[in-house]
Computed example of a mutant assay.
Amino acid sequence: MRASRILLFVALGLLALFFLTPLYVMLATSLKSMDELREGSLLALPQAPGFAAWAKAWSSACTGTDCGGLQPFFANSMLMVVPAVVISTALGALNGYVLSKWRFRGSELLFALMLFGVFMPMQVVLLPMSQVLGWLGMASSIGGLILVHVIAGLPGTTLFFRNYYAGLPDELVRAAKLDGAGFWQIFWRIVLPLSTPILVVTLIWQFTNIWNDFLYGVVFSGADSKPITVGLNNLANTSSSVKEYNVDMAAALIAALPTLIVYVLAGKYFVRGLTAGAVKG
């Protein structure tokens, strides 16, 4: 190997070590007891690793006045994330299909207006969205959070699919029309089977955004519908006689675990989807 390549690998290894150090500290801290944390070094390996802090963070840690751990918040996030991701992705695929292959008068203007939603600050929609949820009777519910995230994610998913479908040959749609295929037949049998890369990108993107969201979760949720991010914040800010850093680190890892798993299992497909045209057009 040439010296330049060796230096490159060394530099990449040092950078990876630098960025993974906080994750190592969190994991090591979560596996230590409080006595070991007081007596040992922050970077030291656990002498007697255990999952007592994980068990407490999951089932018995106090989040305000409730001491039921993160389990109910985790369940709320799963009930919210799965339908919100599926619905916003499906609607984005339909919007992208229409705006790229079934253009109509004013479609470009409509797409440009939808793009404002990608760059609009989330704080701008808090008051009007609260009023809409109140009118619909969906305030402080998981259903209301699903609706909020679907609407907030629709501009981004539309942008992804529209730009991806713009790169597909128009001749495919024209040939299908000549063979008598209609709108839905072309979408299901031709366009959707070619959409695997952008589907993976959009699903990962939406899952990460919705799972990690805190602002909408704290504003639009009720006592029984708070997501995992709100539960983690409440747990970390709950005052007690002794600050249990191992429980806090275990709770943070529990909250981050789904997104970590998604990126570890599907990260390479995410990169492939981006290079396949997710940000083109």
Rank of each mutant, 00 (worst) to 15 (best):
L136C: 04
N163M: 03
Y24N: 12
L15Y: 08
W135I: 13
A75F: 15
D179Y: 09
F73N: 01
K280V: 06
A57Y: 06
I6S: 14
G106Q: 03
R38I: 15
I146H: 05
T196A: 10
A53E: 05
L215Q: 01
L253C: 09
L159P: 08
N234V: 10
V200N: 00
L14T: 06
S59M: 12
S195E: 02
A139M: 07
M122T: 15
D224P: 14
L178R: 00
N163V: 07
L7I: 11
S4H: 10
L168M: 12
I146F: 00
A16P: 10
S140F: 13
M129T: 12
A75C: 10
Y165R: 04
Q185H: 05
M249C: 10
S140Q: 14
V191P: 01
P155R: 02
Y164G: 01
V148F: 02
L27T: 07
F214M: 02
T29L: 00
F220I: 00
L42P: 04
A93W: 06
L274C: 02
T65C: 06
V148Q: 03
M80W: 06
S225M: 03
A252G: 11
K226P: 12
F9Q: 07
A152Y: 07
V173F: 03
L126P: 03
Y263T: 08
L159G: 07
L43S: 11
V125T: 07
I146A: 06
L110P: 02
W58Y: 13
H149C: 00
F111M: 11
T259V: 15
V247Y: 05
E244H: 14
A175W: 08
R103F: 01
M138W: 06
L45H: 12
V98I: 09
A48L: 15
T157V: 09
M34D: 14
L14V: 15
A181H: 02
M78D: 04
E171Q: 08
A175H: 13
R272M: 08
R105P: 02
A176S: 06
V132P: 11
L235M: 01
L253D: 01
E36I: 14
L115E: 03
P49R: 14
L215V: 04
A112N: 12
A84G: 14
F116P: 08
V200A: 07
L113P: 13
T208K: 05
D35Q: 08
A166M: 08
G267M: 05
S130F: 11
